[in-house]
Write a protein that binds this DNA or RNA. Structure first.
Lengths: 310, 310
DNA sequence: TAAAAATACTCCATAGGTATTTTAT
DNA sequence: ATAAAATACCTATGGAGTATTTTTA
């Protein structure tokens, strides 16, 4: 053991002292009974406390009475025990996932669809948990889940295949939504309430950026191919407002997840696609070995909010 | 032991956890070495902590890394340990008599002589000690020392005989001062710088009250008797200003302790007594069984301030 | 293979308990 | 005589230590 060793304070003994000293008529035997310990033991605990302090806490007549030092010490001890109580309470809260922090990786799609509801519900249930939102690109988020600087990440998935190769991360699909056609208001097909993808085989396309939103990029491409053509890509863009702006300027048409309809832009209309509708999947990912109660609670809120995925 | 028993928190273990968790690169073996405890022991302490909490504080790869809960818990633990430190520090201070309260019984004489200096010096040395001054009559003060509602009392003593019968109180003479003659300015003997007590054998006397200041009353009486006469008492009074007022109105003359000379009153003069000068004793009294460090410090200040008594 | 952490087992100080004596009312 | 506190002595839990094995880079 450490040579410059100093006896650690014994909280239990302190509690007993406080319990005893708080009585109006200090009676060691009664107090011992109430504390469910034998009287001689309480006697010794008090003696030990006095020994360690090097000061008498009580005068003996032989009935006990607090010394003036004892009174001061009592006050301080009461305060400390209050702190201990609070500590234990907070630890308990933290254990229940009610206190702490959660780092969440987000992207355009989720912040335009489910995220507001998720945040609102979670914040209401766990007001003492800090939610740290990080607007990340797809690649970054994977890394940051790996090195644990991110607790949970919303990701657009093209498919669930190769994502889980090391079995470190868990993925869960939380929503599927159809793609919709994004057209300039002046477009010849804008008058139809519904359109077919094949009708746009020769139109210029604005595609989600391959680098930054690969899942959406690939989904769009594959949808066109399944409809029988390769899209004529005139521009790539990452953020929805950018895409909408380009469409409004009649540079081309675009395919975007239905949640884009939450965003109205002058000069741009959305049209439902009939026939084989490509579905856009949103998933949530986290480390399999992260057993944080906060994460657990967050996942439950996400499941509660997300439309059932059958 | 108590059936609804709950394990007390172990402060030492908490300290070790905090020490370990505060390292930038958490290394249990290194930490154990620095804490002067064997590595397996530290391992177990952490495990026990986790067990009691029912939550994992670290992830094992097998290298240790704080979980998000661990981080929250660390913060709380740091705070609590700070409180513990402060508690121990305050206890130490209180033990040294630097924090607390002292009840002091005072009387007219002491507050007119040594008390201001005593209070000033003590307050300077021990600014965190509350001094509670109580203006008490002689009888009250004895009782309050007995029932411990007073820590220390300044008393006028006529002699040291019968005061200590139960060996409960300790008395210590802190000053002796001569009585001086208090005369109206118009008095025929007021022109002499010094007077003899016997010259006032037929004068009307104003005496300290027998009930409230018995020691001074008796001292005055005995002084006169030793000078060869019984004083002609026309009035008794307790407070010095009262006595001075009566003298100024030429109701009579008085004998008062020399400290009265700190008090100037128009129409009143003080004259040194030659020959056998009656000496007025001031003592300080406290319970023999009061080992309060604060009291000890106060007594030392009093001794430091009081003129040597040979 | 080396370094970190965990496991298995010791030992012993002290927390916790029982019977009895001392002290003051 | 009674009740409170102290003393003496006992047991057993958990704090503290040693030797060894397991795990991962």
């Amino acid at each position: 053991m450490n040579p410059e060793y100093r006896k650690p304070i014994n909280i239990e003994r302190l509690k007993r002292f406080v319990f005893l000293a708080e009585q109006e008529d200090i009676n060691l035997s009664h107090a011992a009974k109430e504390l469910h310990i034998p009287q001689p033991y309480l006697t010794r605990q008090i003696q030990q406390l006095e020994e360690e302090l090097g000061v008498e806490l009580f005068v003996r007549n032989p009935r006990l009475e607090l010394t003036s030092y004892g009174k001061v010490f009592l006050k301080q001890a009461q305060h400390l025990l209050g702190q201990v109580e609070q500590f234990q309470h907070l630890s308990q809260q933290a254990k229940q996932g009610e206190i702490g922090r959660l780092s969440i990786g987000i992207n355009t799609s989720i912040s335009n669809s489910l995220l507001p509801d998720i945040l609102r519900v979670f914040r209401q249930k766990f007001p003492q948990v800090d939610l740290v939102l990080q607007e990340l690109l797809c690649k970054e988020s994977r890394q940051r889940l790996q090195n644990r600087t991110l607790d949970v990440d919303f990701e657009n998935l093209y498919n669930l295949q190769d994502v889980d190769k090391h079995h470190v991360l868990t993925y869960e699909v939380i929503s599927k939504e159809p793609l919709v056609m994004v057209l300039p208001q002046q477009h010849s097909l804008a008058n139809n309430p519904q359109v077919q993808l094949a009708d746009f085989a020769n139109e210029p396309f604005i595609l989600p950026c391959r680098e930054t939103v690969p899942a959406l990029h690939q989904l769009t491409r594959m949808a066109c191919i399944e409809a029988g053509f390769h899209p004529n890509v005139v521009q790539e863009a990452t953020w929805m407002p950018t895409v909408l702006g380009l469409v409004a300027s009649e540079m081309g048409v675009a395919l975007l997840p239905a949640n884009v309809m939450n965003l109205q832009r002058t000069g741009v209309v959305y049209r439902e696609i009939i026939g084989k509708v490509p579905m856009f999947q949103m998933a949530i990912a986290w480390r399999r070995d992260n057993h944080s109660k906060i994460l657990f609670n967050f996942l439950n809120v996400v499941r509660e909010i997300s439309p059932g995925v059958y």
